[in-house]
Amino acid sequence: MKTIAYFPGCALKDQARADETGTLGALARLGYEIREIPRWNCCGTVFSLVQDDLMRHVGPVRNLLRVQAMEEEKVLTLCAMCYGTLARSAHFVEDPERLRRINAFLDPDAYQGGVEVIHLLTLLRDEVGYERLAAETRRPLNGLRVAPYYGCVLLRPRPFAVDDPDSPAAMERVVEALGGTAVPFPERTECCGTHLTVTRKDVVEERVGRILRSARGGGADALVVTCPLCHFNLEERRPAGTPDLPVLYLGQLLAWAMGEDDPGVASLVGRAAVSSEAVR
């Protein structure tokens, strides 16, 4: 067993609970002992892009401090937004002056720097590896045509990209390793509209319609995502007449292939299979 510190994030403990259970089960099968960070707090979900708003970095850095206290060097996130905020904050405080000012708020503790933030996708690619994924697959996807949707934070801004921002391939390789057929499509790296879903439903619906039509145009039976908010928008903000593509979280697809029993995933994969029949 290999231990790894784990930052769940709020959505995975509430509305997106289904995304967490199967994923952690699959990771256990792959030999990981998941250590959830004690007393973690919200990562902030969006990284503050101005220079003088230090307060917004206190929360994410506090989580890194707790990873440090666990004597772990790496922390795993399942949510792309948590990855983005934590990874960028970890980089932000590599500057000693900023770290000093933020540590003044974390008093009496102090973050020393150096914790690495990774996402499920990079764990599968860099640590588990595609070959091992394929070897451990118990319930192959039988050529199911799955379109990987990356969205933004795993690819942009460039210094925090987990893959080539213009032409990513990691998720496609994971889908293939699990026995599916990866379907790349033009909108796979374009934003879903994120938090605008609360205030500008119209904008997000337009985005979601484009993304789903683009994926269906490529012949996809299902979409796979890395972020609970993309997941929410792609399910809940479909304009009328949008193709009925099931959306799965990457970890759910993994859980299915590794043989985890999750009725929610089973029904989604079933829906994808039905949609697949309908297309052919």
Binding site: W40, N41, C42, V58, G59, R62
Partner: peptide, 26 residues
Amino acid sequence: CVACNTCTKACPQKLEVMDAVQAALR
């Protein structure tokens, strides 16, 4: 909530107020 922990520092009952906000949030 920005997890600044100011609430916890202000509490005369010495409660972990920020942890409670975070629990409420999730």
